[in-house]
């Protein structure tokens, strides 16, 4: 264990802990933009700088491991001045159209600008302009809002193992883009959208459907597969307008394209909400009782006429373990056959 003090408070933490994490344990807040607890440290935004006694220049707390006897100060007039400069510089190259931005109310940059009271900006000048829109079907890439924190690049590489995007160019012209600046063509898991601290990456389906205000968040489980990721449905006026997942869930907030973007069926007019029974070559709506009775009568009839082994059951990877267990139980004891299988075996 390593003992250090942060703002005069002493704490003991495991070797290898970063100063930022140690501060968190002490409930000391240090502003960050590029840092993400699940990704390797980047050290690019420079907001999390702290002073360490005996070190001439400020160090980024997200990249600096603790050392024995370290004396850290997280806030001084000099540090706050540097943070303010950094924020003003970022905002000097930002559209600042929070008024119409999808991310307003849920944006780390907006939040920091608020806390640092940045009304006037000492710096103005050229802003990056992107004429071309990415034509992919899922992810809105409004790169003028990108602050180059690198989180999307890291999540794509370190978590998803895809590497669809990276930094390109140098200097003020640096940008994040897919190979040769083509349209994004990847798995569309949307992890990049999930980690983006600004409005640079959002879901195309979310546009103009409602920001964080007046959203009801409903936690549920994804029904696409047996993995059962935790979802948070963002509901506005009884309509799901966005799906996210929280970091403290067992799936750590990560989702796939289906869980994140595959929710439009919910309000689709084609969606089956009631059972249908085919009568005289035509599907007719029926009640659940009616449908279940119909099925059980038919199954019984087949079983009596041809024996239980003339019936087979195929279940689905979309079901949970428990549901699959119940299904085989039903086939074995209810029907009396071992003819039971599962689509994931194929």
């Amino acid at each position: 264990m390593i003992k250090l003090t942060i703002n005069g408070k002493t704490i003991e933490v495991a070797e290898g802990t970063t100063v930022l994490d140690a501060a968190k344990m002490l409930n000391i807040e240090i502003p960050t933009l590029c840092h993400h607890p699940k990704l390797t440290p980047f050290g690019g935004c420079r907001l999390c700088i702290v002073e360490v006694k005996g070190v001439p220049r400020p160090l980024t707390s997200c990249t600096t491991p603790v050392s024995e006897g370290m004396e850290v100060t997280t806030s001084t007039p000099a540090l706050e001045g540097l943070r303010k400069t950094v924020l003003e510089l970022i905002l000097s190259d930002h559209p600042n159209d929070c008024m119409v931005c999808e991310k307003a109310g849920d944006c780390t940059l907006q939040e920091l600008a608020y806390f640092y009271g940045i009304r006037e900006n000492r710096f103005g000048g050229e802003r990056r302009i992107y004429g071309k829109k990415d034509g992919n079907p899922f992810i809105e890439r409004d790169m003028e809002k990108c602050i180059l924190c690198g989180r999307c690049v890291k999540v794509c590489d370190e978590v998803q193992g895809v590497g669809a995007i990276d930094f390109a160019y140098r200097g003020f012209k640096s940008k994040i883009c897919p190979t040769f600046e083509k349209d994004l063509d990847c798995e569309f898991c949307g992890q990049c959208v999930a980690v983006c601290p600004t409005g640079a990456l959002t879901g195309k389906m979310w546009q103009l459907r409602g920001r964080q205000k007046d959203i009801k968040e409903i936690d549920t489980t994804c029904s696409y597969c047996g993995t059962g990721c935790n979802l948070t449905l963002h509901v506005r006026q009884n309509e799901v307008v966005r799906v996210t997942s929280k970091e403290d869930t067992w799936n750590e907030g990560w989702l796939c394209v289906k869980g994140r973007f595959g929710y439009s069926f919910i309000n689709s007019p084609d969606r089956l909400k009631k059972p249908l029974i085919k009568r005289n070559g035509k599907f007719e709506e029926a009640s659940w009782n009616e449908a279940l009775d119909y099925i059980s009568a038919k199954l019984r009839e087949i079983k009596e006429k041809h024996g239980p082994d003339s019936i087979a059951g195929l279940s689905s990877a979309r079901c949970t373990n428990e549901e699959n267990y119940l299904f085989q139980k039903f086939m074995r004891t209810g029907i009396g056959t071992n003819n039971v299988d599962h689509c994931a075996r194929l």
Partner: peptide
């Protein structure tokens, strides 16, 4: 230096641009 900044950190990427302007 502005042209050769790697673009990783804000003070260098945007700051040198503002100095240059």
């Amino acid at each position: 230096t502005q042209m050769e900044s790697c673009g990783k950190c804000v003070p260098c990427r945007i700051g040198t641009k503002r100095l240059l302007e």
